[in-house]
Design a protein around this nucleic acid. Sequence first.
DNA 1: CGCCCATTTGACAGCTTTCAAATCGCGTGG
DNA 2: CCACGCGATTTGAAAGCTGTCAAATGGGCG
Lengths: 243, 243
Amino acid sequence: MISSNEPLAPMLGKLCARGTLDDADRAAVLALPYKLKAHDADGYIVREGDIATHSCLLRTGFAYRQKIVKTGERQICSIHLPGDMVDLQNSLLVVADHSVQCLTRADTALIPREAVIELAFRRPNIGLAMWYDTLVDAAIFREWTTNIGRRDARTRLAHILCEFAMRMAAAGLGDHTAYDLPMSQQELGDCTGLTPVHVNRMLRSLEEAGLIARKQRSVSILDWDGLVSAGDFDAAYLHLPNA
Amino acid sequence: MISSNEPLAPMLGKLCARGTLDDADRAAVLALPYKLKAHDADGYIVREGDIATHSCLLRTGFAYRQKIVKTGERQICSIHLPGDMVDLQNSLLVVADHSVQCLTRADTALIPREAVIELAFRRPNIGLAMWYDTLVDAAIFREWTTNIGRRDARTRLAHILCEFAMRMAAAGLGDHTAYDLPMSQQELGDCTGLTPVHVNRMLRSLEEAGLIARKQRSVSILDWDGLVSAGDFDAAYLHLPNA
DNA sequence: CGCCCATTTGACAGCTTTCAAATCGCGTGG
DNA sequence: CCACGCGATTTGAAAGCTGTCAAATGGGCG
């Protein structure tokens, strides 16, 4: 068993969920060179336009990908949990087409880009798991496009609450009926293409329907099946291993 | 030089645009086993829920990825041009989380999934180019999420017209000021999260502003800079090689 | 205790949708 | 070569979901 105080252990856990790794693969992952870094809430991990030199593992804390439009509004394209490899996207594409920013204080491990690529092809099991992981990210992007493009506000919010519940549970951060959501209603709006005012109204609607309860930013799901139905949610796109 | 009547030649062209391939790599790509298939307009290449056995190269014609929501409406998540490897996404994820459908009549080459993966890891240059290609797809998904979530209807349409123009030109299907768009206004609406009626009005608005001209489904861009500005368009996310 | 930011609420405006009908384009058949 | 028919496009009017603006309330931190 791998000691959990290995800094790269969360990455190993993620890769094992995305593919099949043998003992030598596991050791190779933990042997990657890295540099630890701490980030404040709202700190940037990557800025749009950056040239990638490192790939980033989110060890603790939450982060999100965002793009800014002409009017100054922003769109959050995905949320990342502890254990996520936040930046395989940008680091292979070289020039970052979006920013990655911290939602909370966070600890990361920066791994040189070349070391990641070298490992991916030296040990195909690992490479396939990493590739798979980036494709799951892509599947989530597609679902978010669909969510914003073709669902009404209430359904969008119910959907995203279901997604977070499933992913938090899969990451071991709470079961799928209760979790702490480290996001403001403004940020929820930036995820769903809504204004914070309307997010507030729709959350209240979900609460009044008895589907969820809120206390500060912790969400309890009182009626999972009801929320799944209200959110038109089908977890297939998350490609979770034990589903 | 590779003979252009090699059925897999379009794939080679795409991969060369996504990475650096030597002669042995090129020969290995063309040596992939494949089966040719013809599709009618609206025919399915992959259906949501399918178990992937083959990866698909779009040799001629246009295709799109789509997801259907509870109300029966659909969201188109991306458009694919001749030469695109339409299904690396689904074939590595195993269970398709979305459908791929033909916009026009199309010819494809089906390549066994295992052969693709084996080649990717046997020849890292090829693997990296394929991985890169899936990441560019992901970058386009993010931009579409942003487009739909945070831009108004007119801007969305101008943006998508710019994207098509750049990609058509990059694929050698017209220059970036005129191209044939094989989509109905209904389908444009499914790309942008709009109704066909509103697509019609906004296209007219772009036309009246002197930015574009339309004749049937062929689009002429009269004022490229104006359309780029109206569409808040920055081609960086397309990660085109010669940009 | 007091400040600051997030949340909440209400009234109103507006962009986009909805519903319907007319027009146009184009392949088919006489 | 022209009439017919069907789907796509176009247009108008009205409804509605979501956004905007503004102010009140609430909670956390120094």
